[in-house]
Each structure stands twice: as C-alpha cells, then as structure tokens.
Amino acid sequence: MAGKLLPMADDAPEQPQGGRTRRDFLLAGVRTGSVVAAGGLLTILAKAPAAAGTVWQIDPDKCTQCGLCATNCVLQPSAVKCVHTYAMCGYCKLCFGLLKDKRTGNTLSVENSRCPTDAIKRVFVEDPYYEMHIEENLCIGCGICVKGCTRFGNGSMYLQIRHDRCVNCNECGIARACPAGAISRVSVKTPYKLKTRHA
C-alpha cells in the first residue's frame, strides 16, 4: 500500500487479492468520513464565540489572600502580582496595604511595613494624599498587602494573574490550590478582572 509514496513503487509486493478489497473500501469510507467530520467540527469551533480560548484569572471578590499564589505557580516568582485600582484608593498616608496595623511609630522601616520585598513605594501627590506605587518586578504575589488593604482600607489593592508572565497552563497550579475557588478560566478577550468600584 505504501507503494504510491515510494520511489520504488513499481516493484512493491503484490497487493493481496480477494477479501481485502471490501475492507479497504470500508476503511476509505471511515477515513473520508473522519476528515469531513473533523473539518466540520473545526469549522464550527472556529466560528464559535469561545474560539479564541481562555486564560486564567483571579476573582478579587472571592480571593482570601491565603498566600498560595506565591508558592504554587509553576513560575518562580509567581505570575500573580498585586494590582492597584487607583480610582478606588483613598490615597491615605497611613496606608494599611503598606503599613502594619501594629506598628512602632509610623516610619516606613521594615518592622512597620507589610511587604516582604518592599515592593510598595509611597509617592507624594499633594497634601495630604499619597500614591501607593507597586513595583511589579519585586512583587511575589503573596497578597499580604492585599489583606491589609481589604481589611482596613478600600480594597483597591488585589491580586491578578499577569498575562505577560503567565504561561497559561492547561491545568493551572494555583487554580487547583486556591482554597476559595477564586481562579477560573476567562475569555482571552477579557483577561483581567479589575476592580472598578467600591464593593
């Protein structure tokens, strides 16, 4: 049978006679059918709204800041980072995303600040407002600041999967580990769940 493809087809072994022809005919039918079915299926898929596929994202309203995002992502550091919706932020100088609730004084020194990698920078805007800027390359996605901001502040800081880093595993390590079931597939066209208003 391979003869047609081979350069030495002419002296390929004789095709066995008899009963095989019907089998070959059937098989050819099966193959043609499969190709037509597969083609049809793929055309339907390509036209479906979900064709472009999905990516993973965290629902900030469900997130409990357990910290597993920092350790369970296949990437190190994690593809999860803290995102800040400034439009929701109160711009407090005493930011509970930045500072611990129990402090000795109000300096920014490490014993007072939450972020383990010092990734949050407090930038003066105008009296008495300060912008909390997050240095994404330092952020490890531990969610400690998010916890502070959610408990004591406006909840303007929250965790999101950053798609410039995420490799979009078919089985997402952190989605599997997430105790709140907060991570789900979303359309690749709307890859973020950004907070826009007060909860």
Binding site: C89, G90, D101, R103
Partner: peptide
C-alpha cells in the same frame, strides 16, 4: 491602630492639582 477598623472606606479624594489616578496596566496574554 485601633481606629483603623472603624475608618474602613476612604473615598477617593478630589485632587486640586489636576492629578489623574493612573490606570492599572493590563499586559495582554499571547
């Protein structure tokens, strides 16, 4: 610190000097 919990929601301020809050960046997936 004890007051922290009472203070909770802190509405976004209205800035006088034309400061516009930056938008969170959204790096797109592949």
């Amino acid at each position: 610190a004890a007051h922290a919990q009472e203070q909770k929601k802190q509405p976004p301020p209205e800035f006088s000097e034309g400061y516009t809050p930056p938008m969170p960046s959204q790096p797109q997936p592949r």
